[in-house]
Amino acid sequence: MAKRRPKLAVWKFASCDGCQLSLLDCEDELLAVAEHLDIAYFPEASSRMVKGPYDLSLVEGSITTPHDAERIRRVRRESRRLVTIGACATSGGIQALRNFADHREFINIVYARPEYISTLEQSTAISDHVDVDFELRGCPIDKHQLIEVVSAYLNNRKPNTPAHSVCIECKLRANVCVMVAKGTPCLGPVTHAGCGAICPTYLRGCYGCFGPQETANTQSLSAQWIKMGASEKETVEAYRGFNAWAEAFRSETVKVGNGEGGDGE
């Protein structure tokens, strides 16, 4: 008798769909995924929708509405394993920039009929609402890491997705450090690995797409940026990207913005 293929579901919350696209972007490997997993619920890819429960749920997006706050609980109940994918799902995403301001003001500016909009004050990570079995970082996620997580799930092993800095990835690629050799502000030292150090490889500073590394010393990095000539505004804006609401980035932007951080020793 053939082994029962585990049922896979892919869920979307507040997000741009880019991380789900990473799964479709797997191309050759996608066929292998489909061979070993029953893609039971993946509206972005197929209109076939098999009812739960599901063995593995990949969740993209952040929680921004009361409706989604309820929906994620249902997804959790229907999922044996729940893996969040991408910056929105793991830290609130770019839309968490509203957490630093009054969301009602935004609604009033953007929408002709604000009273139709039902939204939460903050955009938050999935793990703020339900238990999460594994978080895969990135904006967007790296497709090789996604395959690694799925392979690890299928083979009942731990995925290799190190939580150390992007700097290690740069050094493994023998990149010359853009911060030291060019004075380019780079978030690599405080950012979680996973992308393979794409931006520094092309001589750009890291944008922090994968969020904070395991022990991100953002305060020390900000001080160095300012010593190198970056303004406080530039420093705050760098952290306020796709992972602005991740604790190590959020707390530093608040400090630097108030003139508490980035003052050298």
């Binding site: 392979s151 092993r157 800095s165 700097c167 050094k171 405080v190 395991e214 022990t215 010393n217």
Partner: peptide, 22 residues
């Protein structure tokens, strides 16, 4: 920064880890 750059550039640091993949 616990970024590990010092150990990566050090000509004597020799530590490695192993990663098993399937």
């Amino acid at each position: 920064l616990t970024c590990a750059n010092c150990t990566m550039v050090c000509p004597t640091c020799f530590c490695t880890t192993v990663e098993d993949t399937t």
